[in-house]
Amino acid sequence: MSGPNRRVALKVVGATLGAGAFAYAGRPVAQWAANLDLDEVLTRHYKELTPEDLAQILRRLEAETQETYGVDVRIEDIPPQDGVSFGYALNLSLCIGCRKCVEACHQENNHDRRTNNSYIRVLEMEQGSFDMEKGTVDYDHTVPAPGKYYMPVQCQQCDDAPCVTVCPVEATWKEKDGIVVVDYNWCIGCRYCEAACPYHARRFNWRAPEIPADEINPDQGYLSNRIRPQGVVEKCTFCLHRTRKGLLPACLEACPTGSRVFGTLLDPKSDIRWVLEHKRVYVLKEELGTRPRFFYFFDK
């Protein structure tokens, strides 16, 4: 074969191999792009949706849940009520660290079963110390253990929430009843909020949640416990799909010791107001100026 011909042949072989390599390497990306649902990609921010848009999205999400998980669910958009501002308090003298609240949250909020996710972590703390450094979350023995007390931590629904401040796309915000919510259809998954939160309250969906059909809670809220998509951040919403309808949070109902007190701060006759007025309450990491709505207190 003469020089120029060989060069041409080499170029043809090279180009073919190159094109093949590009096609092979790019296939997963192409597959991902092909699976994107244009309606979903173009969904507007929650606050920009008309009631008709929202209704359509809710029906679409219900159909998708049926398709993916094989369950009929009801997804609602439940707005905050006027004259309601939620607060939560926890009696550390009563809490025994049984983690019933952790489990109730796991089930109520349709968490991924493989990672055993929950919005609540319970720290086993040393008597006489507020130092979390000396606490542990992975205790595995009969509770309560001598010389210990137990401190469940979940979203503090801060009035000056660092997670809301840092979000670059306003995918998370504070509602007028004090609850910090996430628009799962708007979050870009940058996880800046996870870095900013001082209370380890946020979780990321590292993969699509996996839940057996018979364990799915079918009563779902758009901004709360609906099954989250892959790649977005989620958090505790004080069970807004329950509490905005006058029910109590799942973690409170599950507590066998009555450590948890929930209610509206604007009602002078509420239990939460009684606790705030009669107990010496404190908030976690007060020095950071986040102004939590979650209060801790000791009885004795």
Binding site: L36, V41, H45, T165, V166, C167, P168, V169, E170, A171, W186, C187, I188, G189, C190, R191, Y192, F204, N205, P229, Q230, G231, V232, V233
Partner: peptide, 24 residues
């Protein structure tokens, strides 16, 4: 990014650009 398909959310004027509050 967990959701690069939503990159447009961060384009000023088209998405919701949380400026000047968010350092990002």
């Amino acid at each position: 990014m967990g959701r690069p398909d939503r990159l447009w959310h961060i384009i000023p004027g088209i998405g919701r650009f949380h400026w000047p509050v968010s350092m990002l």
